[in-house]
C-alpha cells in the first residue's frame, strides 16, 4: 500500500525516537503533510491553527495527556478523526478511548500493519 495521501496528519508523541519512527511509517505509507508535537499542549496549539484529517494522540504524555487533549480537540472540532496510542494495551484503556470517541487504538510498538488497519477503518484506504 503506497498511495499519495492528501490528508493532513498530526502526531503527538513525547518520545522523539518513537515519534520519528511513527512519522517515518506514515511517510512510507504515503502521507505528505505530517505535523508532530512532543506533548498535548503543543499538539492542541497546532490543532487550533490547522485543520487535520487525522490525529494520533499518545495517551501517556506530559503537559496535557492524550485523553485530555482529545477532550479539548473534540470541543473545538467534534468531527475530527482521533486515534489513541499507548504502550499499554489493557482492555480498560482501549474501552475508555473508544467510549471517549476515539476512532482507533494503536498499541506501541508501532507497526505498519497496525497503522494500516486504523487507516482502513478511519479513512477507508
Amino acid at each position: 500500500m503506497k498511495v499519495q495521501l492528501t490528508t493532513a496528519v498530526l502526531v503527538a508523541e513525547d518520545d522523539s525516537r518513537q515519534r520519528d519512527f511513527f512519522v517515518g511509517i506514515l511517510r512510507h505509507l504515503g502521507f505528505t503533510h505530517i505535523d508532530h508535537a512532543p506533548n498535548g499542549q503543543r499538539a492542541l496549539a497546532l490543532f487550533r491553527e490547522h485543520e487535520y484529517g487525522l490525529v494520533f494522540l499518545d495517551i501517556e504524555m506530559p503537559n496535557l495527556n492524550g485523553i485530555e487533549a482529545l477532550h479539548h480537540m473534540f470541543e473545538h472540532r467534534p468531527e475530527t478523526n482521533i486515534v489513541m496510542v499507548s504502550a499499554h494495551s489493557t482492555v480498560d484503556n482501549v474501552k475508555t478511548a473508544i467510549k471517549e470517541g476515539a476512532k482507533g487504538f494503536i498499541v506501541k510498538p508501532y507497526s505498519i500493519a497496525k497503522v494500516e488497519g486504523v487507516l482502513k477503518k478511519v479513512l477507508g484506504v
Binding site: V83, I106, V118, V122
Partner: peptide
C-alpha cells in the same frame, strides 16, 4: 472474562483489521 464476540467487536472498533 470476555467472549469472542465482544473481543472481536472491540478489536474492530480499535481499528484492528486482522
Amino acid at each position: 472474562e470476555m467472549s469472542g464476540i465482544e473481543a472481536t467487536e472491540l478489536l474492530r472498533m480499535s481499528g484492528n483489521v486482522t
